[in-house]
Design a protein around this nucleic acid. Sequence first.
DNA 1: GTAAAGTAGTTTATAAAATAAACTTGTTAT
DNA 2: ATAACAAGTTTATTTTATAAACTACTTTAC
Lengths: 97, 97
Amino acid sequence: MFKELNPLLHSELRLGIMSLLLSVETADFVYIREQTGATAGNLSVQLDKLSKAGYIEIEKTYKGKAPCTLCKITPEGVNAFGQYVDALKSYIHFKDE
Amino acid sequence: MFKELNPLLHSELRLGIMSLLLSVETADFVYIREQTGATAGNLSVQLDKLSKAGYIEIEKTYKGKAPCTLCKITPEGVNAFGQYVDALKSYIHFKDE
DNA sequence: GTAAAGTAGTTTATAAAATAAACTTGTTAT
DNA sequence: ATAACAAGTTTATTTTATAAACTACTTTAC
């Protein structure tokens, strides 16, 4: 009846991160924090989870002398997101758009 | 950027319950348990939360001699669900259907 | 009739998760 | 040098989901 919702994606912040990364393909820590409104601590933890799951890749670089954490969605991430959306459709009937 | 996802609805089981009640308009405890695959304990707790939020109404009746807990979505529930779906669209681009 | 097994549901205890507060490391401005 | 700031991380706290254990009642078997 209802498809299982991947618990890693069924989280407001992680869903926002993934949604963002889907649209821009690469974003740094500060940008993600600003766009999602998350606290740095929370963001750090959630990025770590997504990274460990293989849904995103994290590269630590520098922007000038300041550290800069770059994030990028992986093909597995894109796939998992697609499946999540598909599962959502068993709960919700989307029309329009 | 991203709309807030009502935490009461952003839960796999509660979303399933609400989705179910939207389609049938009235369902009893056992039916909901079967359709969602939830354990009785978990279902009891989540129905209570939805009821306390005013999203569903619970009526305790009898089916013959056996107790029967009837659930029905309220207008506020319908409305909250609609807003939840709307918020989801800020995270996800739904096409088709 | 009474013991055993089953049904419907609740309460309570546990495990997992989200989140923020506190901290670390380095940098820029005074 | 010292103070204030930026980018993150680690740790601690609170919340939440979930299942296990329980209650109350009913039916079935002896």
